[in-house]
Structure formats: structure tokens, C-alpha cells
Amino acid sequence: MSIECTVIKEIDYYIESIELLFRIINKNSYQNLKMDILKRTDESKHKKICYQLDKLSIIQDDIEKHTDLNDPQIMYYFSPFLSDNLCIAKILYQWKRHSTFSGSKDEIKSYIVESMDSIKNDDTLELSFDDLDLKTSVFENNQKACFTDRINNLECDPGQKWKLLELIEHSGKHLDNLYKILDQTVAALEKHEETLVELKGEATAYWVDYFEQHNFHKLMNSFYNIKEDSYPSRPTFIRTRIMACNRVIFYGNDENAGDYHLLDVGILFDCNFKVSKRRLSNQELSNGLKLLSDPSKFEILRFIRNNKAYGQEIAAELKLTTATISHHMNTLMKLGLINIEKSDNKVYYQMNKEAVNYLLEVTKRKLLED
């Protein structure tokens, strides 16, 4: 069954502003990114990469001039929180990033507050973090826990737990504070609208043309080694991201929730992006090793290292819920550590030994040989 794909053409200035401010506060310059990417790509792509990142660098320098880097509110919302890619602002706004919801600022605020309240009030949801998000999954064995206990069970220090508890409890107040910062950045960013429209327009046109000739199954096969027709067939939205130009993020792998998929693709990428083949950065290596160090993910990979298995089968063997298995598979998929295929109306998973071996070999080379 073919999946309906829609490429979103509008620029979300608030999401782009959050990413840009995070880069500015944490001194992640596009010039440094350019030098790193040029080392890892074919020379045939260098001219385009330099053009795009030089444009973003000009924007970054200009926005930095309009940003008070000593403002305690800005530092609070945009300093790293738990990982090098995460901050309070991203956690607060992630429910907007995870959806296609659109509307006025007040409507978006209500949507985010409702999403935060659902996390606070649903005692069946276990909380965890990955490199980019606050994650939720259904507790194993039908467990339940109150909100404060679920926060307390997170693997972070007490100060971080308190910040997160306070953020969720008072999300409306924090959104008001965040919007005061973002409104100024958006106003400055809109002065570069011509450049932003050009960069996004070119990337958007590429994906519109791609989906006129290919389907989403083919793209998922190219990106994540998922065999065609092996993925849940739901309407899918593709968003090209400008400031997060070097990142591909897929939302919606949970087969038990949601009625659409959402794929964010940085403007530097085309259909040849492949998780298991591209050169891994130090941060990506660290993320991969974190996955392998998680006991549940480690046992899942061991169980499917030689034979494929479907979700319920893995859940029964490891005494986990199918929702938890789906959550783990989503994370493993994003680093290309599993292959997925459909057979007899079941979705089967198997370790991608090539990708796991590559992760370990690169780690060994970085630590012992470079």
C-alpha cells in the first residue's frame, strides 16, 4: 500500500529560532560545521555545501548581534540540558515539533500545555530521555507511578529533575517567558526571509519532485534499511529544516500510537542519506554507545542478532510490553542498528550486524588509533 506524502512548504520561524539560539548560546557555528562536513563528503558536493552554510553563517552572526548572551532567561532556556543537543526550550516546544498542529500563538500554547498536562496526569507513562527529546513509553507489566515518582526515576541529577518537574507543572508560564525571547529572534530572522525562502524552497522542491517519482517506503529503505512495504502505512509529512541543516529526525515509529508519520530532513540531505553508512561524528558515536549500554536495548539486539522476530515475540521473551518494544525499536532504527521487514502481516526486526560492527569499529579507531 502506498503512503501519502505531503511536503510542508511553510517556514516555522519559532522552531527555526529555537535551533538557531541553541547553536548561538552553545557556540556551534555553521563555519565549524562546514569544515567538519567537507571532510566527510565528496568534492562534488562541496560547492553546494559551502553556499548553504555560508548563508546560514551570515544569518547566525547577525542574530547573535541581536541576542544578549548574558541574559539569565536565555541561558536558562538554551543551555545544554542532559545532552549536547537538548535544552529546556527544546523540551518545552517538542510537542509542537512532534506534530503538524498549526494555529495562532495562543492555540499552540494551549496545545503544548495540554500535552504537558497529559504527561503529568497519565500515571501509566514512564519518562526517559534520548539525545533529542523527553520520551514517554507505557510502563512494563502494567505498572503505574505518580508524576513525582516518574520524574524521580529519571537518570539525571536532582537539580535537573527539579527543573523538569517545575517545567511541566508550570508549562504555561514558561511558554510565556520563551515566547518573549523568541518573538525578538523571529523579528530579526524575518529580515533574512529572502535567504531562508531560497534555502528551504530548494530543499522542498527536491522532496516534492522525489515523491512524484518514488514513495515513502523507498525512502525508508534508503534511510534506515527498512524493506519496502514493511512499514505502517500512514499519511506522512516531510519538513525541511533550515537551522537544523545537518540532522534527519523521524517521528512516529510507534505502531500503537499516532495516525501519521513525520520526518524532519535538514536542507543538507538528499535521498542518499543512510544512517548505517555515513561517517559518524563523536556525538553520534556517544549516542550509539548509550544505546548499547541500555540493558533492554542490549538484550533486544542479542535476541535478534541471528534471527528476525516480531514485536510481540520479543516482548514475551524479554517480559516487556509491545509499546516498550516499539519505543526501543524507534531509537535503534534511528542509528540504523536494526533492519525491518514485513511478512505475513507482521513487522519483523533483526539486528543490522554491519551497522553494529561499524559503530564498534569506528569507536575502537577513534579511541585507540586516531
Rank of each mutant, 00 (worst) to 15 (best):
C50W: 05
C271E: 15
E190N: 11
R302G: 13
F147L: 09
L359W: 04
K47R: 06
G172V: 09
D61S: 07
Y231E: 04
K297F: 14
L38F: 08
N345I: 02
T322A: 00
K47E: 08
T6P: 01
K163P: 04
S326G: 13
R239L: 08
N153C: 13
R234V: 14
Y231H: 05
S276I: 01
P232L: 13
Q160M: 14
N70D: 11
K9S: 14
K334N: 12
D176T: 14
H66P: 00
I112F: 04
T321E: 05
Y310G: 04
G311C: 06
Y251E: 07
G336V: 01
Q52T: 04
I304G: 10
I181A: 03
I300F: 07
L337G: 04
V275R: 10
A355H: 07
I249R: 11
E190Y: 13
C50I: 15
F303G: 03
R302N: 15
L268C: 08
H98L: 11
Y93A: 11
L53S: 03
F269W: 15
L167R: 01
D131S: 13
I63R: 01
H327V: 05
N28P: 00
N32S: 14
F22A: 02
V275D: 06
S230K: 00
S17F: 01
I168R: 02
G288Y: 10
L164M: 07
E10M: 07
P158S: 14
I25D: 00
Y76P: 00
K180L: 14
L82H: 00
D61K: 07
K96Q: 10
Y224H: 05
S137G: 00
Q52D: 04
M220P: 00
N256Y: 13
F147Q: 06
I112K: 04
I8N: 05
K96W: 10
M351S: 12
L38Q: 09
Y349I: 05
Y206S: 11
H261A: 05
R241E: 15
E114C: 07
L167N: 01
T41I: 12
S29M: 07
R279S: 13
S115N: 13
F81G: 02
V275Y: 06
G172M: 09
E169W: 03
L367T: 07
L367W: 04
F303Q: 13
H66N: 12
F250R: 04
L332R: 05
C156R: 07
H327C: 09
D62G: 09
Y224W: 06
N339F: 05
I49F: 06
D183M: 05
F129H: 06
N121R: 09
K90L: 11
